[in-house]
Design a protein around this nucleic acid. Structure first.
Length: 566
RNA sequence: CGGGCUGUGGCGCAGUCAGGCAGCGCACUGGUCUGGGGGACCAGGGGUCGCCGGUUCAAAUCCGGCCAGCCCGACCA
């Protein structure tokens, strides 16, 4: 491609509405333009990268036995009604009514649709299967952000496996795991696999692939020593036991005027340190009012609460609901003596004595609370959010908690879809059994952006060679110089013949402009051709990432570059 | 959905408080010079000031409504 004829609209300034590095760079370097919130047009460079990302994914999924399909984006809402997901995913589902009056869904994902196709599977002899497609998804995210990282229309490779039993599922899951690891490597990212909450998917087990980034939307707890890794929505840690002073024989009420927070009670004369307090939260779990008890210095992880209680809808109680239940405002709540209400206590409180908590009367607290003796705990649960520096639950080393981008997510779905949609086969004994499913997603554009987040410097993008829009840019310093034209045209043609993807910068621009543009758009290698070098029979060869520069004889450059990139 | 901010030429912005010629930088077109890190000079083209309505002799500017985008939070396979 000749740059003089290419549409590569680079910008000197960062776009005003971008925050994330990948967002700024992909717009500035002419890869994409925004059309509306969470919707982007891919320009030629962007489309080249996107298509290379898709090809890498395709290669790796084909390599584990995948069969590529292309399922529709338009779905009858009725199918989604059958699995109940038109309810559970209602807030992100794009729907419209067609001219006949039928309700239509723009597919946010394709479990239902692949499962519908799989209805034609009838015998155990046809299993296992691994089906996938790379298709546009629509999700009406309440808040699109960070360029390609969170959008409303995007491309996803989603694969689905169909097995006779859970052993088969495990094997397909493991193969996907391996394929995903290879994909992220080829995209130039170090992704770590973490245990995750399956959320709305309803699966029994899922693994997320996470790339550390300060624009990531998830928090991950990771142990560098033993490799333990989990989304904080699921992570646990080892809490060092606390020696309580020998218990008092009874609960004692005491006045605490104006005290409403853990911190205030900690500094109150006669109060207690945060780790010697019981924090009482009031929640509605699927509309059932519930007390959730935590150590004063611990933080509730709402997703863990929802998972452990199998709740689909959870919210903190409103102030008036709290008052009606316990007779006091938040800040003076306690579970001592409370009966007839579900009381969940975090494991961090197990066996604690001589604790301090609210008295359910404003401006009063109680101390000397012995949990086993004084509180009617319904269930002990682990609902505490892990924080940075706590001990790894596996090996005891300090955990690091960091932000990360979710670049892939694989689920063991089990038989939910098979059962609700009636996907069954006959086994060896002629018995009807539901198919065991898995689903495996990876967002194409999000991975593009995540790769930029992981591969850039202050001059621009540094693409990994496999997804760079071009392998090499040939920069002609003096397009008005005949010898320069001759030499560069020959190198350009020979590289192309050798299978190297090359961009020829033949624009009538100052050298500085060309160098800056080449570095901004992130082409891995640059060949610089100028009269000075030609006099000596050489061209200059620069590696984008290291900046390392060498002079190479004109007649050797093509072979040299071809050996590097092919 | 709650809170905050912003819509002025392709991009980045000033002008709005205090109503009175629509500006600046970059980019773009033609030309001269220049030529190894966003060069200089000369001459140009391009804007319903987000939309609708109101106030006024006069509205980018004041008032009302709406729309859009960004950020924080809520939410989120």
């Amino acid at each position: 491609m000749r740059w003089s004829h290419a549409f590569i609209p680079t910008l000197r300034d960062d776009p005003a509405d971008a925050e994330a590095v990948s967002h700024k760079l992909l717009v500035r370097a002419g890869y994409m333009r925004q059309l509306m919130a969470g919707v982007y047009s891919m320009l030629p460079l962007g489309q080249r990268v996107r298509s290379k990302v898709m090809n890498i994914i395709r290669e790796e999924i084909d390599a584990i036995g995948g069969q590529e399909f292309m399922l529709p984006q338009l779905h009858p809402k009725e199918i989604w009604d059958r699995t109940g997901r038109s309810e559970t995913m209602a807030d992100i589902m794009m729907t419209f009514t067609d001219n006949k009056g039928a309700e239509v869904v723009l597919g946010p994902t394709h479990e239902e649709i692949f499962a519908t196709v799989s209805l034609e599977l009838t015998s155990y002899k046809q299993l296992p299967q691994l089906w996938y497609h790379i298709q546009t998804k629509f999700r009406d995210e309440a808040r699109p952000k960070s360029g390609l990282l969170r959008v409303r229309e995007f491309t996803m490779k989603d694969s689905y496996t169909f097995d006779l039993d859970f052993e088969g599922l495990d094997a397909q899951f493991d193969r996907h795991y391996g394929a995903y690891v290879r994909i992220f490597e080829r995209l130039g990212m170090s992704a770590i696999a973490v245990h995750a909450s399956s959320g709305a998917m309803g699966g029994k087990e899922s693994v997320e692939f996470m790339v550390e980034s300060d624009v990531g939307e998830d928090d991950v707890a990771h142990c560098a020593k033993c490799g333990y890794a989990a989304n904080v929505e699921k992570a646990t840690s080892a809490v060092p036991p606390i020696e309580d002073p020998s218990g008092s024989s009874e609960v004692e009420r005491f006045p605490t005027p104006g005290v409403r927070t853990i911190a205030e009670l900690a500094s109150f004369d006669g109060g207690a340190a945060p780790d010697r307090q019981i924090k009482t939260l009031v929640y509605l779990l699927n509309d059932e009012i519930t007390l959730v008890l935590l150590r004063g210095d611990h933080v509730l992880q709402e997703q863990k609460l929802m998972d452990v209680t199998r709740t689909t809808k959870a919210r903190p109680a409103q102030p008036d609901e709290i008052k009606a239940l316990l007779g006091a405002d938040a800040g003076s709540l306690g579970a001592v003596g409370v009966e007839g209400v579900r009381i969940l206590a975090d494991e961090g409180l197990r066996g604690r004595t001589s604790m301090t908590t609210g008295a359910n009367e404003n401006d009063w607290h109680v101390r000397g609370v012995d949990i086993d003796r004084d509180i009617a705990v319904t269930e002990w649960v682990d609902v505490r959010e892990v924080t940075d520096g706590e001990a790894c639950p596996e090996c005891g080393s300090p955990l690091r908690v960091f932000q990360a981008i979710e670049v892939g997510h694989i689920f063991k779905l089990g038989t939910f879809y098979a059962e609700t949609l009636g996907v069954t086969v006959l086994d060896k004994d002629g018995k009807t059994i539901p198919i065991v499913m898995g689903s495996y997603g990876i967002g194409v554009e999000r991975n593009m952006a995540a790769s930029v987040e992981a591969n850039h410097d202050d001059r621009g993008i540094i693409w990994p060679i496999e997804i760079a829009p071009y392998h090499v840019v040939v920069t002609v310093l003096r397009p008005d110089d005949e010898r320069s034209i001759e030499v560069s045209s020959k190198i350009y043609d020979d590289l192309a013949v050798a299978g190297v993807e090359v961009l020829l910068d033949d624009r009538d621009e100052r050298p500085g402009v060309k160098f800056n543009d080449a570095e901004l758009i992130g082409i891995p290698y640059r060949i610089t051709i100028g009269p000075r070098g030609i006099d000596n029979g050489v061209v200059e060869f620069v590696e984008r990432r290291s900046g390392e520069t060498r002079e190479i004889p004109i007649d050797a450059i093509v072979a040299e570059v071809a050996a590097l990139v092919i």
